[in-house]
Structures are given as structure tokens and as C-alpha cells.
Amino acid sequence: MKNLYIITIAIIASVAVSACKKNESDPAPIIPTQTLVLRMTPKIGADTLDFASTHITANNERYTLSSFRYYMSNISLIKNDGTEEALTGKVFLINPNTSDYSLGNVPAGTYNTIKFSVGLNNELNHGDPTKYPVSNPLAIQSPGIHWSWNSGYIFMMMEGTCDTTDTNVDVLTYGQYSHDLFYHIGTDALLKDVQVSNAPITILPGVNKVVQIHSNINQLFVGVDLKTENRSHTMGSMPLATKIANNIPSMFTIE
């Protein structure tokens, strides 16, 4: 009886092994790949971001911007059937001086969702920034986007000024934009996962693909009173930083 078991197991095992071997000898199906570029376009409402104009939030609060940068990492594309194409190792520092960020070669096909994180995972966030070559987005930047006093990166840095005056009362200071506006959002807890799926991304063999992704900055101010909630270094103003960070995922749309 015992021998029968052993023989049975041996047969099953040999079949399994030969089946494996057969699979291995099969040529892997060749999926054509194509270059995919993300064109990241920061917007304010319908307008393109610029650092010269004044802007208005959905609550009619007035502000200007001088800096808007954020880290994009952990990027993947998801097909209709749920299969995920992870584009590992890609980290971008999205900044207004650069619009196009290449994801390299991506298998052709139709993807209904692009997924990414705004920020960096724990390991990258607490790595040593002095160890990267100058060209790496994780190297020390000028101006800096890394905290040396609480070692970690600023995931999203937005700086400018805002007008905290009341139109009818503060006649003299109205329109002066004399108040600092800055959100330096970071820390592991505020790493935000983003999924954009408002339009499919179809990558055809032989055709380089550019996907344009809008980020609507005004979306950051949802639920924020710019008159009082205009400064955060994250630490020390965690509730405001959390509010801003929670607005990040809804900023993005595919054009």
C-alpha cells in the first residue's frame, strides 16, 4: 500500500516536472513595447500654471505661486483585466521646468488606470541624499527639497504668497499678497497613492505615446481656509498638512 503511494507520487512528480520542462522550452510570447512619456501639466482651474500671475481658489481667495514641485514614484499601469504593469525604479521630481518624464519602454496595450504615489516609500524617504549622483532626482536639490532636521524628503513643495485681507475692510493692504503661502508636505504617514482612470491609455506598437496628466493646484485648497491655513512644514502643523495631502489624489486627470 505504502509502495503504491510512493509510485503514484513519483508518477505525478515526473509528469509535473516534464510539464514544467515543456513550458520552459516554449518561447515566451513576444509583447511589443513602446516608449511612454508622461507630460505633467500643472494647472490652476482652466489656466496653465505660471509664476507671474495671480490666481484665485474655488473659494475666491487670491494667491500667487513661486514654486511647485513634487516626487512621483511607485508608478504602474493597470489593464482592464486587472493585470498591473509595475514600472519599478522610476522616481521623478515633477517641476515646472520639465514637462516630459519618460517611463521608458512599456508593453503595448490598453490600460485603464495609471497608479502612482506622490512622495517616496519609507526606504527611499530615509535614504542618504548625499549618496546620489547630481543628476538623480533624489540627490540634494537647489533649492532643497529634503529635510535635514528630520531626515526625509519633502514630498510636495508649494510656495508663494496669498492675500489674507478682506476685500471690504482692509482697503490699504488689499491685493498686496503680503502673506507667505507655503506647504511643505512630507513624512511617511502622508505618502499618497493616486489612481487616475478618467481616460484609457492605449499604447500601440510602433507609435511613441505621450500621456498628458493635468494636476489642478486649486484642488489642494479644498476645505482649506487660505486666510489662516497658509503655512505648513508638516511637523508642527500635522492637521493642515494632512488636509492638503488628502487633497492630492483628486488633483490629477488624464487629458
Partner: peptide, 23 residues
């Protein structure tokens, strides 16, 4: 800050100390 090497960046970044830019 985790170690002496990275600590060097601290006073450089701090506006009340060296207030400069590593690059």
C-alpha cells in the same frame, strides 16, 4: 538626523545658521 555625515547638511539648510545650499 541619523548620522554625522548627514548632520552636516543641517546647519547648511538652517536659515538661522549657515543658511546656504549644498550644491
Amino acid at each position: 538626523n541619523p548620522n554625522l555625515e548627514q548632520q552636516v547638511l543641517g546647519p547648511i539648510d538652517n536659515h538661522d545658521e549657515l543658511d546656504f545650499d549644498a550644491n
